[in-house]
Design a protein around this nucleic acid. Structure first.
Lengths: 176, 176
DNA sequence: TTGTACGTTTAATACGTACTAAACATACCA
DNA sequence: TGGTATGTTTAGTACGTATTAAACGTACAA
């Protein structure tokens, strides 16, 4: 028995839902992204809830998460009280936006905490030779981490500086 | 009251533990990575369990996960029956290994499922004009996704082809 | 062969959190 | 003003899964 278009759409939505879970988002957030990616029309909260068979509350919460992440945006229908949402760009734009948001947040978190640890380490009163070795070792690690963070930021900025990255542009990336 | 070196090490282990959870690993897996990163000596299962105050079973399971991910490796102590583990490289090597593993696995998964969906779409019997538009739209999306995957693979291969990526090398990455 | 020291596996539990249903808030229309 | 249509918040529940404790397997030593 051949699949219908709706069957295939369901499969696609499911794939994106699982992808979302892998990257730390809820299943429904991913399914909403998938739904709007593979429907070529904006949808209301009620329509999305009905289509995915989930509660309206979940749709409300998760669609606003996607809005914050710049994955979807509201689109205004003339004389309609409902909110309609659509995907914000093509797949490349959406995915890189998500990725860079995750990366930026995590880099900021680690950076701040590492800085705290480095400061703490400077206040340690060294008594034994063993302690001294320990401190030197940790300082070597700090230096590695700082290098790593710097590199990650470099790549991130490189990609973000380009306004509109396309697959064609990506192939121009080289290590000279 | 100033912190001791062990206090600072605990903070560091905690940071890495949280990082692991953000990227879909268990807290203990991350804490083990952190522990071995910030101790400058190999440790046995029992030592790790005691130091982190977790069960030995958890350490066993999670350390083998880290071994599979090439984050840690066994190191043989002469005439010792215990297994000792140490971190497998510097922070850059460990982190990029983890990242590229995650990326490679997810790319493979999506690639295979998308291919299935594309095949299914070709078997759909088109009846209405509306259905035809739907199919064209989905095919446009497939093409976007394939481009995206191709780009991701390009970048991944670029990084992996270099045997030993260092922060200095990263700064040579440019979009020409 | 038996005992001991280790690593692994497993059954049960604990825990976080996504999700739902329902109450609530708000805006628009009659 | 009241009534209806919409979106949001929240308290409770369900569910997945990380973790533990204990049983188990295995290899070495005496």
């Amino acid at each position: 028995m051949a699949k219908t278009i709706e069957d295939i759409r369901n499969d696609l939505i499911h794939v994106i839902g699982e992808k979302a879970e892998k990257f730390g988002f809820s299943r429904i957030a991913g399914q909403l992204e998938g739904l709007l990616l593979f429907m070529n029309q904006p949808m209301s909260l009620d329509e999305m809830a009905e289509r995915l068979e989930v509660s309206k509350g979940s749709v409300s919460t998760n669609i606003r998460l996607l809005e914050r992440l710049k994955v979807v945006r509201k689109v205004y229908h003339k004389g309609a009280r409902k909110n309609y949402y659509e995907i914000r760009g093509n797949i490349w734009e959406v995915e890189t936006e998500i990725m860079s948001t995750i990366a930026r947040d995590e880099i900021a978190r680690v950076k701040s905490l590492m800085s705290d640890c480095e400061n703490d380490l400077n206040t340690v009163k060294v008594k034994t030779e063993e302690e001294n070795e320990d401190i030197n070792f940790l300082q070597k690690r700090f230096s590695e981490i700082n290098d790593y963070i710097e590199s990650a930021e470099y790549i991130l900025n490189l990609l973000l500086k380009q306004g509109d990255i396309t697959p064609a542009v990506v192939k121009k990336i080289t290590i000279s």
